[in-house]
């Protein structure tokens, strides 16, 4: 792999983890798996940046797609047949965070995540990309693979809905 690409991936690593975490509804273990699988795709050259968009928006698109693949796999594992096979193979594990981990989670960040989870997925995605990742609406549209008009609509509706869900911030 080219040195410049590896450098860009390293620079984006923390932001990419935050995006993976959002795509996995705050599940740290799954977000780590998703990010690792995305890196493997890059290493195996299963995906390549063709220069039509910025590296960041392209890379976030790859992570989003990988998270969706992981979600489909997880849905199968949670199905009756999947659970049966996991029990037989003895690989069953609890995906929920441990109680100690839950205690560690910051309450304000957890509240934001809870409220985002109540929004339609597209609205939550665009709010995360704009406010958390500092992307423009055009860049968010590229990551989400929807039109700019659609993104603008999700953005406005999402903001209004999120404000109605959040408690007034005691630490503005």
């Amino acid at each position: 792999m080219e040195r410049s690409i590896a450098d860009q991936l390293e620079t984006l690593h923390a932001a990419a983890f935050g995006w993976a975490l959002h795509c996995c509804a705050g599940d740290h273990a799954r977000a780590e798996d998703v990010l690792q699988n995305a890196y493997l795709k890059m290493a195996r050259e299963q995906t390549r940046h063709d220069g039509r968009s910025t590296f960041k928006t392209w890379w976030f698109g790859v992570i989003r797609l990988t998270a969706h693949e992981e979600f489909r796999r997880l849905r199968y594992r949670e199905s009756l047949l999947g659970r049966l096979l996991l029990q037989v193979s003895g690989q069953e594990q609890d995906p929920r965070p441990s109680p100690s981990r839950r205690m560690e989670l910051d309450e304000r960040a957890a509240e934001l995540r809870r409220c985002l989870a109540q929004l339609p997925a597209r609205q939550a995605e665009v709010l995360h990309l704009v406010f958390y990742q500092d992307l423009t609406l055009n860049e968010a549209a590229e990551v989400m693979r929807v039109s700019i008009g659609s993104v603008r609509q999700h953005y406005e509706r999402g903001k209004a809905r999120l404000r109605s869900l959040l408690q007034p911030d005691p630490h503005p």
């Binding site: 792999m1 590896a6 780590e32 890196y39 960040a109 934001l112 709010l127 959040l166 630490h171």
Partner: peptide
Amino acid sequence: DDDLLARFEHARRCDREDAPAWRPELLEQ
């Protein structure tokens, strides 16, 4: 949108503390 920006900024700081370390060996596959 300062109120929302502050919320997301706080969440970003929390997540970055929890982010796994960068592992360049993942790219050597």
